[in-house]
Every structure is written in C-alpha cells, then in structure tokens.
Design a protein around this nucleic acid. Structure first.
Lengths: 70, 70
DNA sequence: ACACAATGTCAAATATACCAGACACAATGT
DNA sequence: ACATTGTGTCTGGTATATTTGACATTGTGT
C-alpha cells in the first residue's frame, strides 16, 4: 500500500510526534507508524479520531490520491 | 454504535440493494448490513470502495454526525 | 562520549472485521 | 398458494488490525 504523506504532513503541521497522536487517539505508536507507512488498512473510527486530533476531514487525510497515475 | 442512515439513503438513491452494493465492492451482504446497522467499524478501504460505488465522499457518508446528542 | 527523542521494524499474542451458510419475516408478484 | 426479493439476525470459522515488548538508527543537545 501507498504511504500516507498527508497524514505525516498534518501531524508535522501540529508539531506532534507519532507517539503524541497515538496517545491522543488511544492507540499505540506502532499503529500510527503503520498507517503512515501504508502497512495496513485502519478502521474508519480510528481514521475519524486521527482527523479530529489533527483538525482535518476524512477526505483531506484518507480519500484516495487525486493525482494517482492510472 | 449508531446506524448509518446516510449510507442507507445513498444506496436508495442509486436504487441498489445491500446485495448489489456488497457485490460491487467485493464483500458479503452481511457486511454491508452490519455497517448500515452500526454493528461494527469497517476499514477505511472498504469505506472508500463503498463511497465510489455510491458516488459519495468519505465525509458525506462516514464523517461523524455533528448534531449527535452528547 | 553520553543521553534522549523520534522513527522504523520485527515477533508473538489478542481483538475484531469479515466470510460462509443458514433461518425468519415482510412485501411483491404469479 | 407459491416463489422471489430485500432485509435482519445468528453461529462458527478465517484473515487481519492492533497490542505489547523489544532492538536499531538517526538527529539533537550536553
């Protein structure tokens, strides 16, 4: 799966570490890391929680890339 | 969990049954039924697939209800 | 050189999304 | 009366998301 660079960028914009986000949404640091690196396919509730912490919408962070080739 | 009435409405607007949507996105009918009834917490990839079939965005179908009583 | 924060990654265990198959019930049509 | 479609729900199984704990690396500051 593709990396989620928008998530990484939104986190950087809030000056939060992976650990900070993980604690804010109630999951482990490895889970946030895996999502950013595209290692798996998180649940919608977790995505919503992340969006709220980072002040973004689902479409902004998780909708598929507009400029995907193909 | 709360029912997803927006999903049900979007499906009705396309005149598709739960079975139709299930086959279009490659899951079983029970999975679509469970999501509409709030029985669990689907993965983001499944949500995206459903959105595409129903011509809706993630925010339109899965963003949390603003006027939830709390 | 040492400590420390942030990240990447691995392995084993647990929780849960999702499947496969079935049964029930209401509404529709023949 | 009978079949069909759409939905709700249950049970038992498999796949995978997520946890816990650990170790290595890079960068920053002392």
């Amino acid at each position: 799966m593709a990396k989620n660079l928008r998530l990484k960028a939104a986190r950087a914009a809030k000056d939060m570490s992976q650990k900070d986000v993980a604690e804010a949404v109630g999951v482990t640091r490895q889970t946030i890391n895996a999502i950013e690196n595209g290692d798996y396919n998180p649940s919608i509730n977790l995505c919503i929680a992340i969006c709220k912490v980072l002040d973004k919408s689902l479409d902004q962070l998780f909708w598929e890339d507009e400029n995907a080739t193909g």
